[in-house]
C-alpha cells in the first residue's frame, strides 16, 4: 500500500517539525526570546551530524550526539554577545545569526561541499530493515524522540528553572529584582532549545539522506513560527499540534487540487496564501492559539490577609 508510505512520510516530517516547534516554543513561549534564526540550529544539527558521519567516519550515534552538542554550543555562542539585548534586538541578532550559518554552509566548501550539498548520508540501523519496513522504523524512532523531548521539556518547564524562564518572559525586571541571574537563565534556555532543534536537524538529514544550504533558508524559520502561532505558545502540546496543522495544510492543497475547478498551478500558489490567512485569522481571533497556556494562578486566601 504505497499510500501508507506517504502517510508515514507525512507523520515523520510532522515529527521533525514538532521538535523544531517545541524548541522554538521553549524560547518564545516560555522565555520570551524572539528567535528569528531558529533554522540555524536545524542547519547545524543536520550538517554536524552528517559531516561527522560521512567525512570523519564517526559512528551514527556520535553524529547525532555531535549534532545536538554543536547546535547547543551555537545556542550558547549566539547568546554571549546578545544576552543583554531586549526582545526586538534579539530578534534581529538571531535573524542575522541564522543567515550567517547558512552562508557558512554555502561558502565553506572544503567542509560542507558548498552549494552541492552532502549526499548519501547513511541511515541508522538501515541494514536491520527491508526497504519497506525502514520508514516505519524511522517513524517510531522520531515518535520516540518527540515523546522523550516532550517529557524532558515538560519537566524543565515545570521545575523552578522553568518558572524562572516564565518570569523572564512576563517581567524581566521583576525577575532581576528577585536576584535571579536572567542572563545566565536565557543562555541556558538557548542551549536547551539548540540541542532539541539540533536533534531535529540530525534526524532530518539521516532521513532524507541529502542536505544542501537550500534546505535552511529563512522561510523555514517562519514556518516554525506559523506552527507555534497556530498551536499556541507556552505549551508543548500546542507546538506539536501546530506542526500537525501546518504540515497538513501544506500537503492538503495537493489533494484538493483535483476536486476543485482550479489548475494545479493556482492551487500551488494558494498554499502560501492559506498559511498566511491562517496566521492572520489566529492572530485576530485566537491569539493564544489552539491550545492555551495553562497559567497557574495562586489565590491568596482572604483570611491570611485579614
Amino acid at each position: 500500500m504505497p499510500v501508507i508510505y506517504f502517510l508515514i512520510y507525512l507523520l515523520t516530517m510532522i515529527g521533525i517539525y514538532s521538535l523544531l516547534a517545541m524548541s522554538l516554543n521553549f524560547q518564545v513561549g516560555f522565555t520570551g526570546l524572539i528567535n528569528f534564526g531558529q533554522v540555524a540550529f536545524f542547519c547545524i544539527g543536520a550538517y554536524a551530524s552528517s559531516l561527522l558521519v560521512t567525512k570523519a567516519g564517526a559512528p551514527l550515534i556520535l553524529g547525532f550526539v555531535g549534532g545536538m552538542a554543536l547546535s547547543g554550543l551555537f545556542g550558547y555562542i549566539i547568546s554571549i554577545p546578545t544576552k543583554s539585548l531586549k526582545a526586538d534586538y534579539w530578534a534581529i541578532a538571531t535573524l542575522a545569526g541564522g543567515e550567517v550559518v547558512r552562508l557558512l554552509a554555502l561558502n565553506e566548501g572544503w567542509l560542507t561541499e558548498g552549494p552541492f550539498g552532502v549526499m548519501s548520508i547513511p541511515q541508522p540501523l538501515r541494514w536491520l530493515f527491508s526497504k519497506d519496513s525502514y520508514p516505519l522504523f524511522y517513524l517510531f524512532l522520531i515518535a520516540a524522540c518527540v515523546l522523550i523531548i516532550y517529557f524532558v521539556l515538560s519537566l524543565l518547564t515545570n521545575s523552578p528553572f522553568g518558572r524562572n524562564l516564565k518570569a523572564i518572559r512576563d517581567e524581566e525586571d521583576l525577575c532581576l529584582s528577585l536576584g535571579k541571574n536572567t542572563r545566565k537563565l536565557k543562555l541556558q534556555a538557548m542551549v536547551v532549545a539548540g540541542m532539541v532543534a539540533g536533534l531535529a536537524g540530525a534526524l532530518f538529514a539521516h532521513y532524507i539522506t541529502y542536505i544542501s544550504p537550500e534546505n535552511f533558508k529563512p522561510i523555514e524559520t517562519f514556518l516554525m513560527w506559523a506552527m507555534i502561532i497556530v498551536g499556541g505558545r507556552g505549551n508543548h502540546l500546542g507546538a506539536i499540534l501546530g506542526a500537525v496543522v501546518i504540515q497538513l495544510f501544506n500537503v492538503s492543497t495537493r489533494f484538493i487540487g483535483g476536486y476543485v475547478p482550479l489548475g494545479s498551478d493556482t492551487m500551488a500558489a494558494l498554499r502560501m496564501v492559506i498559511i498566511g490567512l491562517l496566521i492572520v485569522l489566529f492572530l485576530l481571533y485566537a491569539p493564544e492559539g489552539l491550545i492555551r497556556e495553562r497559567k497557574k494562578v495562586y489565590h491568596l486566601k482572604r483570611k491570611h490577609i485579614e
Partner: peptide, 16 residues
Amino acid sequence: EDTETRPAPGMDAARK
C-alpha cells in the same frame, strides 16, 4: 506537483 523551489516541499511533491 509544485516544488516551491524548496527541497522540503519538493520532497512532499515527489512522495505524493
